[in-house]
Design a protein around this nucleic acid. Structure first.
Lengths: 144, 144
DNA sequence: ATAATATACTACTAATGCAGTAGGAAATCA
DNA sequence: TGATTTCCTACTGCATTAGTAGTATATTAT
């Protein structure tokens, strides 16, 4: 069970924007460069994030991207969901009419629990939390 | 993030065997029929489960498959891992030298937490737990 | 022995989704 | 007007997954 690079890239890009929050627009090529992501590919991911309302953009020279809300108001789980789609561990969890077998219902319970655990972790974290963690990590570096 | 049918099928097959534990070998075609899975495809999954030591087989007429251990001694997470491989939410969680960016380290922490949450759920459940749940569900049915 | 039954093993194939590429249109600033 | 940057759409190569096919091997029943 792998996470798509789509989601990993997207979240890393959003993290860049969170760190840049309040400092004006950040250009796509800068983000792509820092994160070592194909500019053209990231461009498509940004479109998804934009239409979902997490980020906004300014076109033209001196343009770029920025968060649409404060980092504290953006939950990681929401960004994740936007990029990765529902964590459909199994179709039957979302779609009631998918199966009829008793045995499956037990399996289904498990997938529902796993799904809940995943989203539980992700929804407890805001972008601000991650920015704070990154700062903390950096300050630790200086003491080593 | 979807689960492969491989894992879903495999776990459902193992659940059939768990319910049949102590009653002799259960034939592949019976399992496939009950669970609505391609016989030939399930055959391959059974080979994986067998070489991992979760099930054993008896060849020839009146043969079939059975659990190699008591249902109580088999953790769901282990079966899951056997079929699905490591829950590589991101490569960097497994492979230390995968990235160097500070930003990624924050992302990495998240993926590690998610991974831990998933395996935490799965490892807390044994096949026996699931058999018990299934029985309970059935008895509930009779009261409705 | 022989036929019937069931697993074991290996190779192939179609379909799908993912990651990345390409090129031009539209907006903004100097 | 030119440079810059986002916006939009379509295409492509690759890897993985799900499923199929056929044959070999082992065991039981007659």
């Amino acid at each position: 069970m792998k996470l798509s690079t789509r989601t990993r890239y997207g979240i890393r890009a959003v993290l860049e924007l969170a760190e840049n929050y309040g400092k004006g627009p950040l250009q796509l090529k800068i983000i792509a460069q820092r994160q070592d992501i194909s500019v053209k590919y990231l461009e498509q991911l940004m479109a998804v994030l934009r239409s979902a309302g997490f980020i906004k953009s300014i076109r033209g020279s001196k343009g770029g991207y920025m968060l649409a809300k404060a980092p504290m108001q953006i939950k990681l789980g929401d960004v994740f969901y936007c990029l990765e789609g529902p964590v459909i561990i199994s179709e039957c969890v979302e779609n009631e009419s998918y199966c009829t077998r008793t045995n499956d219902c037990v399996a289904r319970q498990i997938w529902a629990e796993v799904q809940k655990a995943i989203m539980g972790v992700l929804q407890s974290i805001t972008l601000q939390n991650l920015v704070d963690r990154a700062k903390h990590n950096k300050s630790l570096d200086y003491h080593i």
